[in-house]
Simulated scan of single mutants.
Amino acid sequence: MITNKPRFDEALRRFDEANSEDPTIEIADGKHYPKEVLYAHRMSACLGRVAPDASEALQLAARCQHIRRWSIPRNAFPMDTAGYHKWRNSLKRLHAELAGQIMQEVGYDAEIIGRVQTLLQKQQLKTDPEMQLLEDVICLVFLEYYFLDFAKQYPEEKVIDIVQKTWRKMTPQGHALALQLDMPASAQALVAKALA
């Protein structure tokens, strides 16, 4: 339940405004969008389908999950596994910090700000049902909208490994929803291979 709709709507607007500065443009349904604005709206829409009664904190976290992600490019870190993890951890801190600033400016209290920041930093993934639900939504959005383009960039064995890692992060409900996604045949074939 949203406790204060104008404040909630203003937070979403401010998240979108921050993401609208993304220099990467993507096309969806014939329209041009800054990449992270499009991603944020896809996250909100997916959460709305999967959990229409999601808490206010979870709805906010879904919308700002990649806020200003382009600010810390992957190539700012070594291109190895350790560098990848450092990059991801830096992004989590950035997202939590920016979301907290915006939420404070629009009038949220420390408790809900802290909750959104916890969700964005993926704390207690396996023990926090809301965190796990957010992870399901992240994985579903990836599989539905980004997986095929991602798969084209890498050898099949790496793609299969990524699908298997993605699958391990998801709940049984997330698995069921993923298998219902309307993915192209080539994407479905890769997922089937990964799960075989």
Rank of each mutant, 00 (worst) to 15 (best):
D149Q: 10
P155M: 10
L91G: 04
A45Y: 02
R49M: 09
V50G: 02
W70Q: 13
R68T: 13
R93V: 02
K165V: 02
A18K: 01
R74D: 04
E97F: 12
T24R: 14
C64V: 00
V141Y: 06
R14Q: 14
N75C: 07
H66I: 01
Y84Q: 11
A61R: 03
K126M: 14
A40V: 08
D109F: 11
K86S: 07
L179V: 01
A185Y: 01
L125N: 08
D161P: 01
L58S: 06
A192F: 01
Q173N: 06
N75T: 09
Q188M: 07
I72S: 04
L47C: 07
A57K: 00
K5P: 02
M183R: 02
Y146N: 14
E144N: 15
Y33P: 00
P184S: 04
L12R: 10
Y33E: 00
Q121N: 08
L125V: 10
E111D: 03
S44M: 13
V116Y: 04
L133N: 04
K86V: 00
I27L: 11
D161S: 11
P23S: 03
L140W: 03
D16Q: 05
R93T: 00
E36L: 04
V137E: 01
D161A: 11
A82P: 07
L148V: 05
T24M: 11
L98I: 15
V37W: 00
K31R: 15
M103N: 12
I112P: 03
Q121C: 09
G174L: 06
N4E: 06
V137G: 12
Y146S: 13
S20M: 09
Y154I: 03
P78A: 10
L190R: 13
K31N: 13
R63P: 04
N19L: 09
Q153F: 02
Y145F: 15
R14A: 15
G30V: 12
D16K: 02
Q59K: 12
P78M: 09
E156A: 14
A196I: 00
A28P: 02
H85T: 02
A61G: 11
E156Q: 13
A110S: 10
Y39T: 05
E135K: 11
A178H: 03
L91M: 07
M183W: 07
H41L: 10
Q180S: 05
I138G: 00
D80N: 14
L60C: 08
D149K: 05
A192Q: 14
D53P: 00
K31L: 12
D29T: 00
N75D: 12
P6D: 04
G83L: 13
A185F: 02
L12M: 08
F77H: 11
R88S: 05
E17N: 05
L38C: 07
A51V: 14
I2V: 14
M1Y: 00
A196K: 09
L119M: 10
V106D: 00
Y39V: 04
L190Y: 05
M79N: 08
N4L: 10
Q188V: 01
F15H: 06
A178P: 11
N89H: 15
K86C: 07
